[in-house]
Design a protein around this nucleic acid. Sequence first.
DNA 1: CAGTAACATGACTGGTACGTCATATTTTAT
DNA 2: ATAAAATATGACGTACCAGTCATGTTACTG
Lengths: 233, 233
Amino acid sequence: MTVKKSASQTAEQPATAETLAQGRDAHRDETAPLVPVTARGEATRRRILDAAEDVFGEMGYYEASISEITRRAGVAQGTFYIYFHTKREIFAEMVGDLGHQLRAATRAAITGAPNRIEVERRGFAAFFAFVAAHRQLYRIVQESERVAPEAAQGYYDAISRGYEQGLREAMAAGEIAPANAEAIAYALMGIGHFLALRWLVWPQGAQADALPDEVLTSALEFITRGLGGPTGE
Amino acid sequence: MTVKKSASQTAEQPATAETLAQGRDAHRDETAPLVPVTARGEATRRRILDAAEDVFGEMGYYEASISEITRRAGVAQGTFYIYFHTKREIFAEMVGDLGHQLRAATRAAITGAPNRIEVERRGFAAFFAFVAAHRQLYRIVQESERVAPEAAQGYYDAISRGYEQGLREAMAAGEIAPANAEAIAYALMGIGHFLALRWLVWPQGAQADALPDEVLTSALEFITRGLGGPTGE
DNA sequence: CAGTAACATGACTGGTACGTCATATTTTAT
DNA sequence: ATAAAATATGACGTACCAGTCATGTTACTG
């Protein structure tokens, strides 16, 4: 048969009115992910995912078509549905992957930072570098807000949680002023997001590979003051 | 004829290869806006715009259809194209309108504020109130980033410019620390955007009409410190 | 080497939607 | 009152696309 699916996929029955009625919502199962078993399958799935990143990044979710994705991947249309149930599913998976990569890159960048301010400095630098290197992909996260809200909120929540933990520890250690950690986490994410948008994503020409020094400096000074150094208050 | 268009709309010619070649990109003129002349026309255009706000807000740009818009507006499909060239055009116009309204509301809220910190406090409050009252519409701005980038950038740039001016004056007056005004403006916009997203837009239930006090307080303290009071530095 | 599971193909279906157009109605100008 | 402009109609043309399916091909297993 096909690749690993949910167990309840028995032999085919003729599509009577009854069997159609059983199909709850629409289409098919939409349950367990379609995982390849062979190395060949793995490779094909990978090629489709890579092609999808390009196509979604360039054209956006709705203007991208499965046929364009499979064309770039060098496979037939039907092959797509061996590895993904729907267009939306592959998109959500990409958002998850992206979040994973970004968090890994950030985590690697901040390990060993001597204090909270240095954590911010290195974390923001890593974030901006990541966005600059994946400019197209970053637009995918934005679009996911509409296309796959769960994926988008998962993305931001995962980042936020990591952030909050670090902030709470810094607060407990008296390194920064006490405050609602989630609020500060989202505020910092917002700063990063908008600076990246303005200076990395919007500029069309290839000229902007990084934030202008002045911008980065001003932002970091703002954040440093905002977090509040070790004050008596 | 139709409503006011560009001047170069003469009598119809048979569509020869030549005339088709003249049609540069695709479709029609796509130039001057389609402005109604009569009060009746004005009213119809308004009804279409209002319906479009609902439909785009609820379903998003791509899943919204012209037929759904005209249905809610109570007009025929063809009527739509009397007042708007394309689906994209009405969307962009809505983003422009929204920006206008938001800026007006904010401006009204901050007039008479005694100092820069109070400007921020009132400005953020007005912004959050606006988003809470137009939750659906706010998603339109987000989507415009992909659908009509010029409109999105116009929206943010207009806000930024107003922000920058106020910040520069406050810097000159020594009320806040000197810095790159545009960077600070976008940082503040990012903070507002993300807090609104997390506590006003995402919550499905009607429970959240405003930010939790603790969140708002933490954010404003962060901003206040970040801007830097009148320091000797 | 035969049998079977995994993988691959590409034509096809059903449905939807943007934008157009010939025609009809209402309003304004003379 | 009559002509012309402005506004309104709704069916239609054209196009595209997500997802399906019957039929092939590859590769592993015993």
